[in-house]
Design a protein around this nucleic acid. Structure first.
Lengths: 202, 202
DNA sequence: TATGTTAGTGAGTAATCACTCACTTCTGGA
DNA sequence: TCCAGAAGTGAGTGATTACTCACTAACATA
């Protein structure tokens, strides 16, 4: 027993580390994830982690980068496939919810990181992600107004806040119920109300 | 210096402890609040805390009880003053936002507590609070339908999730911007969209 | 003024944390 | 086959955590 772990190229080990953190966050308070727990999840000694990351904070920053890349690329692809701005908004929403359902730890990590007051690497990464996300939404709102799909008087800033809030509300709900899959069931109803709030009145 | 702190009745000391935690949470990650920091905030030795609370978790539970009582009583009073279900919903919303603006640490504590997977005392207290809050909302939705103010086909479950999500979105926004007061400015616009999503179409 | 009770404190404790280091094992190319 | 460099490890380190305890100071009341 206690066999030594097989060596692995550094970049693969780093990916595995990030995925271990995301997996652990699903059923643990992200702030309470220790380097020992991460190492255990990977089947590696705790000291091994520090061969690939200088500090724990660098691990968290890598997690944020991973999240930002995956989420934004999926969301962009979904929006590109849509036939209109409003359809794109719904596609972005559905894609985001699907991403969360598949990686329930992600929203928890994001929110845990936001809470921190200091300007850590990871927090700045969340900032950047949210800014990029908001920019995409705002373009869709603007286009939707121009095409007459959305309320011409729509407050774009408020619509952005509420879009993210809708997702947050669903996350809170699913975290309280403990059943991750529930978010898929509740999502359409929540989006329907949101949609009603932003479309052009007929 | 290092004068000894004046003795205080136990119940007052407990209240002071709760308020110290709420104050600290405003500009600190709630999960990182130590008993030393709480004691310092109160001008008392760390050991003194444990004369009034058996464990740190009991402190957090008291904080949750404090939050639940204050928030629900204010929200109930606001709803009672309103002239119609829809007006009551808006009054509840505004009151809740005002409560958060005055105690910015509160939503952070709530969310930090939700993240935890174990069934701690504090987490169950959050559960109870959210349930009681939802019950009040659902009554307003039902009444609003009956009085013809709200969409007769409104999905009450979704409307509840989105009401809380709207507040969450505003909290996220204000936490990212770092300016707590901003939540008061952004709130009316967000609620306007929400309102549009639930009212009866004319 | 004397006394029992409650509140406050300094100086601890064991546990746990992120991180280090000297050393071992593996692997890929010459 | 050999060996240099990369990856992995056990056994630490100091710092920090929640919590304890023997003792002291203050208050209420008789």
């Amino acid at each position: 027993m206690n066999t030594r772990s097989k060596p692995m190229p550094a970049n693969e080990r780093r990916s595995a580390t990030v995925e271990a953190v995301v997996a652990l966050a699903a059923d643990q308070n992200p702030g309470d994830i220790t380097t020992t727990a991460i190492a255990q999840q990977m089947g590696v000694s705790q000291a091994a982690l520090f061969r690939h990351f200088p500090t724990k904070e660098d691990i968290l920053e890598s997690v944020m980068t991973w999240v930002a890349e995956r989420l934004l690329s999926r969301v962009d692809a979904a929006a590109a496939r849509a036939s209109s701005p409003l359809a794109a908004l719904e596609a972005v929403f559905t894609t985001h919810i699907e991403f969360i359902a598949k990686h329930p730890g992600v929203p928890k990590i994001l929110f845990a990181e936001i809470q921190r007051p200091n300007n850590s690497l990871a927090k700045r990464a969340v900032h950047t992600l949210l800014n990029r996300y908001s920019t995409r939404l705002q373009k869709l709102f603007t286009d939707g107004k121009a095409e007459g799909e959305l309320d011409p008087d729509l407050d774009i800033n408020a619509a952005t806040i509420l879009f993210i809030g809708t997702i947050q509300g669903l996350v809170v709900r699913s975290m309280l119920s403990g059943r991750v899959a529930q978010i898929r069931r509740d999502a359409p109803g929540a989006f329907a109300i949101y949609r009603r709030g932003i479309v052009r009145s007929s």
